[in-house]
Design a protein around this nucleic acid. Structure first.
Lengths: 335, 335
DNA sequence: CTGTTAGCGCATTCAG
DNA sequence: CTGAATGCGCTAACAG
């Protein structure tokens, strides 16, 4: 691989001039520039990212960190989000580094990535509440942004959608359709998003003087399987619920399968709702009534925050976007 | 951020000794090592990846390249594969770099990543046939592996599953159930996997003296939408097909939706099959009969090949794994 | 407008 | 077993 030195020799200039040309420095005679450019082309020269990074103390890489290996499986919402993020960041000259923290003995601390300067900063996707890693990063002043979540202990940048509003939107829709007894299936309660949705559920019941009933609640973990299990469990319990709120689409999809196996019709016998509006939600049978989170907005805001952080912004910024209700056919008016 | 120099001062040794300790060099007196380790801990020292990379001319990063932005959306199979890959590579000390080549004027050439030494090598996921990029990489001798595909022009490493076998497995199953008139929905025909499946379809028909009928074939692009469109189109054409082979699960899922809207029952009125066995396939209603590709095996082989390449292997290796038929309920015996 | 000097943090080579 | 010198490829700061 040719270096600036090789180019310099070929173009009969010093390697410093080459460096200037490469970096579009204005003070280079046009004719010299052309000559250098020609040599660069002929040699197939490319600047060495490591050398640049070493010198500039900046890699132009951002780490995208998922909390568990299985996580990406469970929530295709995050796949769509990652693609959007890659798009945003690449337009601004950054590359995306993929990281998964594993659970158990295989646990990998993402802060290493920035301490070793593999990346300039981190995007933490939905970290568990009270994640020591978050506080660690915050304490050390390392640049990071939480995407889909926040920290109650550390004061840091985060981007999220309004879970209270989203959950309320769904529940109001259900109430408007005449439902009073509504089951609830949570996501992984280690995450604040799951907690928020649950809390909102309780509050909305209370606001309508509907007693909270633990037996119509099921703790899921966002996965299709847990949605399936949730439906089966709630069905076995023979409660009188007429609708179930699932904390994400995947679980609602699992429930559709479970309903089929249990010979219950959706929405004739029971209404169900999802959350996220993943791509597949509108193709399900029945199409899922759900809440859409603004992917583009989330990605753009996240890119903004992390890059702002890297360029020295100190004061934490919190961005909360509005979700939107998508009414389709998995919920119907109660008879 | 402290450097080896800072650690050296604190531990009263030269920075060279620090380097040795960091790299587990055996020839360091135990006592000295402890002292250095202590200083490292106290200072919170971490080796600088850029400096290391510059020196070693090796980044320990691998680029994972997807052909189009929309691609990951369309095939959740690749998400599952990516997670597996990250797992494999991280165990061997490598990090994964995410790259998407865009189409149109926003096209980004992935070879830049290795020329600029951001990564040591590339994993190309399902590149289009005759991709100039592949030949380019091959010509320049840059380390790369094709995952799910191959090159007819360039002689290079690739990992794939046996598309001929996979397609045959499905078709034999369909024939055994009595189907003779079988529709075909292709993936994106720019990709060799899509072509192989189509070719196999034609060959299997020919082997049974069933005439090939263009009107029961639809060109899809792997997406849910195209599966939906495919079903509608084939249905409108009023052919006498009793089964449809979809080149992946996503499209079959779209077809289930389309069938529902057109009041046709699966599998009572028509049998359909998928391909890939994505997570959701077994939860669909009806559960999809499909072909399972060995994710772990693909990921392990890919990791093997690219790392082998990096450590100097010259002769191209081609690995083709066997798929497995998953019989569920979307195909039934013809009356 | 162009070249020289120096140093980013680390590891290889060679001395002691 | 440890240290000193040297260079990886690049750029900022300072000459000329």
């Amino acid at each position: 691989m040719p270096s600036q030195h090789d180019v310099a020799v070929r173009a009969n200039v010093s390697f410093m001039t080459v460096s200037r040309v490469v970096n579009n420095h204005p003070r280079v005679k046009k004719e010299t520039r052309e000559r250098v450019l020609k040599a660069i082309r002929e040699l197939g020269y490319y600047p060495d990212a490591s050398a640049r990074a070493l010198n500039a103390r900046k890699t132009n890489n951002i780490g995208l960190i998922f909390p568990r290996k299985e996580y990406v499986f469970s929530r295709s919402f995050y796949v769509e989000l990652s693609v959007e993020l890659e798009d945003q960041l690449s337009h601004r000259g950054y590359h995306l580094f993929l990281g998964m923290t594993k659970t158990g003995d295989d646990y990998r601390d993402p802060s290493h990535l920035v301490k070793e300067r593999k990346v300039d900063g981190l995007i933490l996707v939905a970290p568990p509440t009270g994640d020591p890693e978050v506080e660690h990063l915050n304490r050390e002043g390392l640049p990071f942004v939480i995407l889909h979540g926040r920290s109650d202990t550390a004061d840091c940048d985060y981007v999220d959608t309004d879970n209270v509003l989203g959950t309320t939107l769904i529940l109001e829709h259900l109430f408007a359709l005449g439902h009073r007894r509504i089951g609830f299936v949570s996501g992984n309660m280690a995450e604040i998003n799951a907690q928020d949705r649950f809390d909102t559920y309780r509050n909305e019941l209370k606001a309508r003087d509907i007693p909270f009933d633990r037996s119509v609640v099921y703790r899921g973990d966002w996965s299709i399987e847990s949605g399936y299990d949730a439906f089966c469990a709630l069905h076995r319990r023979k409660t009188d619920i007429t609708a179930i709120f699932f904390s994400n689409d995947q679980m609602a999809l699992g429930a559709i399968r479970a309903a089929y196996e249990n010979n219950v019709l959706i929405p004739e016998d029971i209404s169900i709702s999802g959350y996220d509006d993943i791509k597949y939600a509108s193709f399900a049978v029945p199409a899922l009534t759900t809440v859409r989170q603004p992917l583009d907005g989330l990605a753009a805001a996240t890119a903004d925050l992390i890059l702002g952080r890297l360029s020295g912004n100190q004061s934490p910024r919190k961005i909360v976007l509005k979700p939107e209700l998508k009414i389709r056919s998995s919920c119907r008016r109660i008879r």
